[in-house]
């Protein structure tokens, strides 16, 4: 059982969290202005890198706050966590 360092509560067990997929995928400013293809990219397409990945988590059995984390998908190590309104930190 991995510990996830909630930026608000500190390290808590992963079972308290829900996963929220790739971070920094903003809801488009004006969806009606997008082509079908660009809209489909927003709705359906996500990165799947081998290595550091910025993703969203919510501490649903704790403070219920959403936050972002950078996780190495090869090791599951959480390299950093940051608030939802902060830019992706530079790792390493």
């Amino acid at each position: 059982m991995q510990l996830i360092p909630c930026p608000w509560c500190g390290p808590r067990e992963e079972a308290e969290f829900h996963y929220g997929g790739q971070a920094h995928v903003a809801y488009p400013e004006d969806p009606s202005a997008l082509s079908d293809e660009d809209w489909a990219k927003f709705v359906f397409f996500r990165e799947n890198p081998s290595g550091p990945f910025a993703e969203r988590w919510t501490h649903s059995a704790g403070c219920r706050r959403w936050f972002n984390a950078v996780r190495d998908t090869r090791t599951h190590d959480l390299l950093d966590v940051y608030r939802i309104d902060e830019p992706r930190p530079v790792i390493g």
């Binding site: 929220g20 919510t58 649903s60 939802i84």
Partner: peptide, 13 residues
């Protein structure tokens, strides 16, 4: 409820 909170916190703070 989670759906509402997600949009309020992540997109429409």
């Amino acid at each position: 409820l989670e759906w509402m909170e997600e949009w309020l916190q992540t997109e429409w703070p």
